[in-house]
């Protein structure tokens, strides 16, 4: 863990102003922001722990808890909302038995909501990892999940 954080900090030349990008890279490495990594980062960048924690909790992209193997993003942007995006989100919650932001007991999926992914024309949209699923309806949820 030590080396990864050092490597990332080095990549950004210890530039404190790049904290968001640094945290993004740490999250990409560990799938979430582990506490030890943040403590390490605090020392490396000479930023108080409290300020790093503040950043990590302000931005929605960051998770302080380990996330599942697959990340499901259900879009709740306006275009998806007017076409029933909320119902898709509820359906996912029911079938995965987790609330938004939660990870399934088997660690397979983390369900996250997002406010627009830039493909509004095909709403409601769900994205699992890098794959997009457009024109979602409730009955398409189960077959979609089965692919994983």
């Amino acid at each position: 863990m030590k080396d990864k954080v050092s490597e990332i900090v080095k990549k950004y030349n210890k530039d404190k102003s790049q904290l968001v990008s640094i945290l993004q890279d740490i999250q990409a490495e560990y799938n979430y922001l582990p506490r030890e990594a943040l403590n390490k980062l605090s020392k490396k960048l000479d930023i108080p722990q409290s300020q790093i924690y503040s950043m990590a909790t302000f931005f929605r992209a960051f998770s302080l808890k380990p996330r599942g193997k697959h990340i499901i993003n259900v879009c709740l942007g306006t275009a998806c909302h007017v076409r029933g995006g909320e119902l898709i989100a509820e359906s996912l919650e029911r079938q995965l038995n987790v609330k938004r932001g939660g990870t399934t007991a088997d660690g397979k999926f983390t369900l996250e909501s997002v406010n627009c992914m830039g493909c509004c024309a095909t709403g409601p949209v769900v994205k699992i990892d890098e794959e997009y699923f457009g024109h979602m309806t409730n009955d398409k949820v189960e077959p979609m999940l089965k692919k994983y």
């Binding site: 108080p48 300020q51 924690y53 909790t57 302000f58």
Partner: peptide
């Protein structure tokens, strides 16, 4: 010291 901060939003 910055022992505390504003957390969440």
């Amino acid at each position: 010291v910055s022992a505390i901060s504003l957390v969440n939003r």
